[in-house]
Amino acid sequence: MIGRWRKTSRRMLHLPTMPAAIYAVGDIHGRFDLYHQIEQQIIEDAASIDGPKLLVILGDIVDRSAGVSGLIDHLLAPDPAGIQRVILCGNHDDMMCRFLDDPAGNRAWLDCGGAETLASYGLHLGEVMPPTMRLQHQLTTIIPPDHRDFLMGLPLSLTVGDYVFAHASYNLDQTDARQDAQTLMWGDPALADRAKSRRILIHGHVIEDEPCIRPNRISIDTGAYKTGVLTAVRLLAGGCTPTFLSTKPK
């Protein structure tokens, strides 16, 4: 983790009933090209399913690739017809927020993919950062206010029935009130492997060669920014076996 940790006011969401289908997408890391492909696959797949559909993005939408600003523009646009998007906060998204709040205290973010994020907005920093006041002015100028508000407002988790969606980890044996924001964004997903609860965590954060189903969790980060493979999982009402969708590396 970088910089100083500060208390978060991010929400934890609950949906009272399972929709007809939920599609969860793993870590995008600025690969807008891949996200466009997977979203089109989801739209086509969802067309044959009657009822409301949910598309959950599991965080880490920023860093490591050049498509961040275009991706956020897209996510701020209207949802696909018949599908509602929910975007969760990953550790990289939170690191960007902390950098925007305090560049001098969180400059290590630049080496974690932040430099590519700023480049997507047209700001190319050299080895030496400009003075703080000048950098703050540059950041205010190049990053649209709605992008800032979007990132600052990302929720930490979503619970739907026995499914819990979070970027990194979640203590499945505890309520939301007992969860820690740092664990949800930075924690070890294997925490769920020790759970006694029947609930299932859907997460990203740790790169897998293939999406993986374990007794208490489904892991879908397939390292899109370097592999070209962005993965989604489809969960249907009624408890059917999860189905994976993915982009194909070139």
Rank of each mutant, 00 (worst) to 15 (best):
D101M: 02
M1F: 04
T141N: 03
V233H: 09
N106W: 01
A104H: 08
A77N: 03
V206M: 09
D50C: 08
P215T: 12
K226V: 06
A108S: 15
P130R: 14
V25Y: 01
V128R: 11
R4H: 04
G90I: 02
T132F: 07
G228V: 15
R6A: 03
T132D: 10
P215I: 14
E39R: 15
D111G: 05
V62C: 03
L100W: 05
Q40T: 12
A237G: 15
A237T: 10
L172G: 11
V160S: 10
G122P: 00
I57V: 07
L245C: 11
T222P: 04
S246H: 08
D33A: 12
I72D: 00
R64Q: 07
Q41F: 01
W109M: 03
L125H: 14
L88I: 04
I42T: 12
D173S: 14
I202N: 09
Q174A: 12
Y163C: 11
V128F: 11
T159H: 11
G126W: 13
Q40S: 11
R178K: 12
S69Y: 02
M12Q: 14
Q138W: 08
A77C: 07
G122Y: 09
R6G: 02
K7C: 03
G204D: 07
T241E: 13
G223S: 06
H124C: 04
W186F: 15
T117Q: 01
C240F: 06
G126A: 08
G113Q: 01
T241I: 12
Y23A: 11
L75V: 01
D50M: 11
Y35K: 07
G105A: 14
H92V: 02
G114L: 02
R85K: 14
S219I: 13
Y170C: 12
E127W: 14
Y121G: 00
R134K: 08
A224K: 05
L100Q: 02
D93V: 00
Y163E: 14
A232G: 12
V128Q: 07
G51S: 10
R178S: 11
Y35D: 13
